[in-house]
Amino acid sequence: MSAPKRAGQHTIQFANPPVVVATASVVGPKEGEGPLGQTFDMVIDDSYFGEETWEKAERKMLEEAVKLVIAKAQLKSQDIDFLLAGDLLNQTISASYAARALNIPFLGLYGACSTMYEGMALAAMLIDGGFAHHVVAACSSHYNTAERQYRFPTEQGVQRPPTAQWTVTGAGAVLMAPVGNGPRLTHATIGRVLDVGIKDPTDMGSAMAPAAVDTIARHFQDTGRTPFDYDLIITGDLGRVGHEIATKLLGEQKYDVARNYSDCGILIYDHERQDTHAGGSGCACSAVVFAGHLMGKLNEGHYKRILGVGTGALLSTTATQQGESIPGIGHGVVIEKLG
């Protein structure tokens, strides 16, 4: 007996595809100077955002993004039924502390850098299931908070390997509702945790690429679609290395994505100018690129249908130090401008 709102083995097909009513993005100075700088709603000019610590700055960005998305949809915070949010810090403090200030029923998420897509998929399920009218999915990351948690103090004189990625400073929020103007979320393919034995935490693109490929391939099998049915297939933060591997792996499975496959981690920074090595990463990477650039292109009609895959490396410093390899995950979501 199959569930009514499913397609194939692993894909959810929404009966009444929820509408992405509004999106909001807040980014740091480096992201503002990047190629997508014009697409973001707010660029902060100081990585402290007027706060004493970077952790507090990250939390404030997330708060601002959620407030902004609610304002853009011309709603009030009491109209929001659920806030689904997460971030990279231990015990997801950015999300919890932001929710403390926002006073909206809150479900905390952790999907590493795939959190935005995990949140959007769950928000769509809550809405299409009839459990909510308005749901906000949001997430944040901050270069400096991530560095101090995962790597070295920021003033430490170390050389980054060329496979390393730059954590995006920013926060993105997406507001969804059963009706309204805007593109709709028609399908979601939930990721499986895949581990291909990569142990180098400075090479997360390689660790995550197979999980993204697995989700994309399962999505095509479940829906009977091909890469040509999409204007754009975009992964979250595989970066240059992961993007190339994913292209090759999809090619091996006879999915030709050379024409329309890109990655948020590649788009957000200028590789020549910004010294970001393999590209951007972090929860905010896929979140702000979706909320800014992709949403803009969907509303303009430049893209009619895109498959976004949020990618996450589910590692921790403890697991890495104990010699564990890095598991990856990819959550796929189809956003379509209908009619």
Binding site: E155, Q156, G157
Partner: peptide, 29 residues
């Protein structure tokens, strides 16, 4: 010092200045 380290790698880690950097950087952080 972190900008020097980006270019020099071990060239600025091995000398005693690098040792000072490795103590001051976390102390500040």
């Amino acid at each position: 010092y972190d900008e020097i380290g980006k270019v020099a790698g071990a060239g600025s880690i091995i000398p005693i200045t690098g040792f000072a950097n490795s103590i001051v950087a976390p102390a500040m952080e």
